[in-house]
Design a protein around this nucleic acid. Structure first.
Length: 647
DNA sequence: CTAGGGTTAG
C-alpha cells in the first residue's frame, strides 16, 4: 500500500496542468497496472474533477464509467466536481446510485454537503428535503459542515425562514453558520435581521464584517458600513473593496477614490475586483489621469483584460471620461475571449458619445460572431436608439429581443421604449406603452413622459406625469423642477410659484449644480453661485461678464425661464451667469491652451441656457468643448453640438 | 466539504 501511495506516477499527478499531460499519466497508470487499485483510481478521478483543469470533469466521468465497483471516495470526487458546475444535476444522479450500491457506513456521508449544494443550485426542493430527512436520522446532524450546507441550500431556495429554522436548531454552530445566515438575510434584503445576528454573534471574523459592509452599502446605508469598517483592526483587500464599492454605489465617487489611495499608501496591492470598483468611481468623476494610471497598473501586473470585468470597466471609464478612442482601442485589444460585458460597455460607450450608428454596428458584429446578447445589451441598444432618434430601429430591436433571443423585457426595457417615443415627440405611443406593459409604471417611466412633455410643450400631459412622479418620489427635486420649467416656458408664473411653495413646504432640496474640470493635473470644482477655489473667483466672474456681452452681440439671449425664482429679470440674468458650467467655461477660456479642448463634467443635466451659451462660445471663441452631464456627452464645435436634445 | 468584494443600463 505504501508503495502505491508514494508511486512516482501518483505524485506527478499533483503537478499536472493540462488535459494532455493528464492523458500521459493515465496511460502510464494503465501500463503499470495501477488502475486496478482503488486508491490510485480515486486519486486520478479526484484530480481530474477537482483540479480545475479544463475538460477534467468529462475525463473523470469517462474514467469513472469503466470502474466496476467504485468506492465512496471515487463517488465523492465526482459528486463534488459536478456540484461546482452550473448544472450539477449529475451530482444527484451519482448520489442516488451510490446509495443503492454502497451501505451507509462506508463513507457515503462525505458527499452530503456537495449534494446539498447541488440541490440548492438546481432549486431541487424535494430532493433537498429528502437529504435533509436522511441527515436528521443520523449523527450527521451534529456536523457543522452538513448543517451549514443545509442553511445555504434553503437560502438558495429563497426559503429564508426554513434556513433560519435549521440554523436555530443546529447543535454545533460555528462562525460559518452565522456568516451564512447573515449572508442569506442580506441577499433577501432583510438588513435589520442581518444586523441583529451580526450584533448577537459570539465571535466575528473578517468574512462577517466584510459581508456587513457590503450589505449596508447595497441598501444605501453608507454610515453604517463606515462604522463597521472603522472598528476593524484587521482589514484585507475584500474589506477595502467592499467599502469602496459601497461609496461607488451611493454616489460618493470622491470618497471611493480617496479610500483607494489610502489602501495603496498602506502597501496593499489591489486585485481585479478592487480595480474594477475604483474604475467605476473614476468614470463617475471623469478623472482620466487616474484611469490611465490604473490601466498601466493592469498591464504592468499582467492582469488579463479578459479576466473578470477589467476590460469592461476600462472601456466604461475611458468612454465616460470622453476618451472614446481609447475605449475602442481597449475593446479591440481584447480580441479573444471577449466578455459580454465588454460588448455591452462598448455599445453604451459609443451611445453616450452620440455615435448611435457605430453602436448598432457593434451589435451587428456581435450577432455575426454568434455572441449571445443579454438583457443589458438590449438596455444599451434601446437607449442608443432613443437618444439617437432611431425610433424604427428601436422598435425592431425591442421585438427581436423576445422573438429572436427569448429575453423577457423588464420594466427598464419598457422604460426605454417610453423614452424612445417620448423623445421623438410621439407622446401618444409613449403613453400607449405605459398602458399595455405588464408592469405598473415606475418613477423612470413617468419622468420619461415628463421630460418629453417638457421638450415638446405638452403642458397637461406633463402636469399629470409630474404629479405621478412626485407621488412616487416626493423627495426627488427633479420632477418639481421639470414641471416648473414647463410652466415657465408657457409663461404661467403663478403655477411656477406654487411649485416652489410646494417644494419649500415639503422640505424638498434642490441638488446644487456642480461642474468640475481637470487643469494641469489639478481638479477644479465649481458650485452654483460660488467657485470653491476662491482665489480665482473675481477673475472668473469678470470673464463670464465679458463673454456674455460678446455673445450678446452674436444674438445670445439669456433664457430667463430657466430661473425659477419670481424676481426681476435683471436678477434672473445675474443668477443665470452663476451656473456652474458657465464658471467652468470661463475658467477654461482663461487657463486652457487654445489648441486643447475644454473638458467639463457636470453632476446634473445642463440647462437650455447653458447649452446655447456653450454652442456660441465654441463658435465665437473657436474652441472645442466636451461636456458630460450625468452620463451623456456634448461635443461643441463651431456653434454646433453633437447631441440633438436641445432646441 | 461550508461563509465575504467587481463592470455594462438607469
Amino acid at each position: 500500500m505504501t508503495a502505491i501511495s508514494t508511486n512516482p506516477v501518483v505524485s506527478v499527478l499533483d503537478k499536472c496542468k493540462s488535459l494532455c499531460e493528464l492523458r500521459q499519466i493515465h496511460a502510464q497508470m494503465i501500463k503499470t497496472n495501477l488502475l486496478n487499485h482503488q486508491f490510485t483510481v480515486s486519486r486520478l478521478i479526484a484530480f481530474c474533477s477537482l483540479s480545475g483543469v479544463s475538460g477534467g470533469l468529462d475525463y473523470a466521468s469517462s474514467v469513472f464509467s469503466r470502474i466496476q465497483h467504485p468506492n465512496s471516495f471515487i463517488f465523492f470526487a465526482l459528486i463534488k466536481g459536478f456540484s461546482d458546475t452550473s448544472n450539477p444535476v449529475e451530482s444527484l444522479i451519482l448520489y442516488a446510485r451510490m446509495l443503492s450500491c454502497l451501505n451507509y457506513s462506508s463513507g457515503v456521508e462525505f458527499s452530503i454537503p456537495s449534494v446539498l449544494k447541488a440541490c440548492g443550485k438546481l432549486l431541487a426542493f424535494d430532493e433537498g428535503r429528502q437529504v435533509h430527512g436522511q441527515v436528521l436520522k443520523t449523527h450527521l446532524w451534529f456536523d457543522p459542515f452538513v448543517g451549514n450546507s443545509m442553511v445555504r441550500m434553503y437560502i438558495d431556495f429563497g426559503e429564508i425562514e426554513l434556513a433560519r429554522r435549521v440554523f436555530d436548531r443546529m447543535p454545533n454552530r460555528d462562525v460559518v453558520s452565522w456568516n451564512s445566515m447573515i449572508a442569506g438575510y442580506l441577499k433577501a434584503g432583510e438588513i435589520e435581521l442581518a444586523s441583529e445576528l451580526f450584533d448577537e454573534m459570539p465571535e466575528r471574523d473578517l468574512v462577517s464584517c466584510n459581508a456587513m459592509i457590503d450589505g449596508y452599502g447595497k441598501c444605501g446605508r453608507c454610515e453604517l458600513a463606515e462604522k463597521v469598517f472603522e472598528t476593524m483592526s484587521d482589514k484585507d483587500v475584500v474589506t477595502w473593496t467592499s467599502m469602496i464599492s459601497a461609496y461607488v454605489q451611493n454616489r460618493c465617487p470622491m470618497k471611493a477614490l480617496d479610500l483607494f489611495r489610502e489602501m495603496l499608501s498602506l502597501g496593499l496591492r489591489p486585485d481585479g475586483p478592487a480595480i474594477v470598483s475604483v474604475l467605476s468611481a473614476i468614470a463617475d468623476l471623469g478623472f482620466v489621469e487616474e484611469g490611465k494610471w490604473l490601466h498601466a497598473y493592469v498591464s504592468m501586473n499582467k492582469i488579463e483584460l479578459s479576466s473578470g470585468f477589467i476590460g469592461s470597466a476600462l472601456i466604461d471609464m475611458y468612454s465616460k471620461c470622453g476618451y472614446i478612442e481609447n475605449a475602442y482601442h481597449v475593446f479591440r485589444s481584447i480580441s479573444h475571449r471577449r466578455n459580454i460585458g465588454d460588448w455591452n460597455s462598448m455599445i453604451s460607450g459609443l451611445a453616450i458619445h452620440g455615435l448611435a450608428r457605430e453602436a448598432l454596428d457593434i451589435f451587428v458584429e456581435m450577432e455575426r460572431m454568434d455572441i449571445e446578447p443579454n438583457e443589458i445589451t438590449f438596455l444599451g441598444l434601446l437607449s442608443t436608439c432613443s437618444h439617437g432618434g432611431l425610433v424604427e430601429e428601436g422598435q425592431f430591436y425591442f421585438e427581436s429581443m423576445h422573438e429572436k433571443y427569448k429575453i423577457v423585457p423588464r420594466i427598464q426595457h419598457y422604460g426605454c421604449m417610453i423614452d424612445l417615443f417620448g423623445r421623438a415627440g410621439r407622446l401618444e405611443d409613449a403613453l400607449g406603452v405605459i398602458q399595455n406593459m405588464p408592469f405598473e409604471a415606475d418613477l423612470l417611466a413617468w419622468k420619461a413622459i415628463l421630460s418629453a412633455s417638457m421638450k415638446h410643450g405638452h403642458i397637461e400631459i406633463g402636469k399629470s406625469a409630474a404629479l405621478r412622479a412626485i407621488e412616487l418620489a416626493p423627495d426627488d427635486s427633479s420632477s418639481y423642477v421639470l414641471l416648473s420649467n414647463i410652466y415657465a416656458k408657457a409663461g404661467r408664473w403663478d403655477d411656477v410659484a406654487k411649485i416652489r411653495l410646494m417644494m419649500r413646504q415639503r422640505g424638498v432640496k434642490k441638488i446644487a449644480g456642480c461642474s468640475s474640470m481637470l487643469v494641469n493635473g489639478k481638479v477644479h470644482e465649481f458650485l452654483l453661485g460660488k467657485e470653491l477655489d476662491s482665489s480665482y473667483s473675481g477673475q472668473v466672474l469678470a470673464k463670464i461678464a465679458e463673454v456674455v456681452s460678446r455673445l450678446k452681440l452674436q444674438g445670445y439671449e439669456p433664457d430667463l425661464t430657466q430661473v425659477l425664482l419670481d424676481i426681476e429679470d435683471e436678477g434672473k440674468e445675474s443668477l443665470l451667469n452663476l451656473h456652474s458650467e458657465k464658471m467652468a467655461i470661463a475658467f477654461g477660456l482663461i487657463h486652457i491652451n487654445k489648441s486643447a479642448p475644454i473638458h467639463i463634467v457636470k453632476n446634473l443635466r445642463v440647462c437650455c441656457d447653458c447649452h446655447c451659451f456653450m454652442k456660441l462660445v465654441s463658435k465665437v471663441y473657436n474652441r472645442q468643448i466636451i461636456m458630460r452631464d450625468q452620463n451623456r456627452f456634448h461635443h461643441f464645435e463651431n456653434g454646433c453640438c453633437s447631441c440633438n436634445e436641445y432646441w
